[in-house]
């Protein structure tokens, strides 16, 4: 959000936002130790595709549709023209970000936490290998919110109860990058069309990664 308010490009904002959880080297190392290095490699490949490809295409997608110059950006006080002392400016920007983003974000976390049983059905080997589950988990993973690297123990636990490689691949790619609260938050700074494109791409990449995991016999 700070980047966006300082007028970074849409592609840059999206790439930074998606790259943080997806290109996270610590998560890839955790994944390698917990599920194996082939899973880490598959996740790394999809992440690069998402951060470079989808963020870039989303920017192009917005630019292509907006033939007219984009609506004038909201007036943001330029740091250089602001005469207040540095630390006051920093504290004020901190307060604005915290009050503007955190409460709304946590309201959605509460709701998602309440309904998580609807998004993640009881895992059994009988449903764990079905193809429809890959699609269902890709959609659930796109909406649901997890802490950094939280997807690794989630997938490990579900695998132990009978989830197949397809569903595991879908969750590893869709849980970290976007979620309902983060989409709402970034929606303050990025055009809705670009975000819809990103969310749709994450879900589709999740299904494709699930299928790739099946083909690779992970």
């Amino acid at each position: 959000m700070g980047l966006a308010k300082s007028r970074a490009s849409t592609g840059a904002v999206l790439a930074y936002w998606l790259g943080n959880p997806m290109l996270n080297p610590a998560t890839l190392i955790f994944l390698g130790f917990v599920l194996g290095w082939r899973w880490a490699a598959l996740r790394a490949a999809t992440s690069i595709l998402l951060v470079l490809g989808v963020a870039y295409l989303a920017e192009r997608f917005v630019a292509g549709r907006a033939a007219r110059p984009a609506a004038p950006a909201p007036a943001v006080p330029d740091a250089a023209s602001d005469r207040r002392p540095l630390l006051v400016r920093w504290a004020s920007a901190f307060g604005q970000l915290a009050v503007g983003l955190v409460p709304e974000y946590f309201v959605i976390v509460v709701v998602l936490g309440a309904v998580r049983a609807w998004l993640f059905p009881a895992m059994t080997p009988a449903i764990g290998h079905s193809l429809w589950l890959i699609v269902g988990l890709a959609l659930a993973g796109t909406l649901f919110v997890v802490p950094t690297a939280g997807e690794v123990p989630i997938v490990q636990t579900l695998l132990a109860f009978g989830l197949g490689a397809g569903g595991a691949g879908a969750l590893l790619v869709t849980l970290p990058p976007v979620s309902l609260p983060s989409l709402v938050m970034v929606g303050r700074a990025v055009p809705a069309r670009a975000l819809a494109f990103v969310a749709g791409s994450v879900a589709v990449l999740g299904v494709l990664t699930g299928l790739a995991a099946l083909v690779l016999r992970l």
Binding site: R116, V146, I154
Partner: peptide, 18 residues
């Protein structure tokens, strides 16, 4: 070879009821 319990369902196959 573990990062602890799952935040969604702990050590169970099913998350807590809605």
């Amino acid at each position: 070879h573990s990062l602890g319990p799952s935040i969604v369902s702990g050590k169970a196959a099913v998350p807590p009821a809605v």
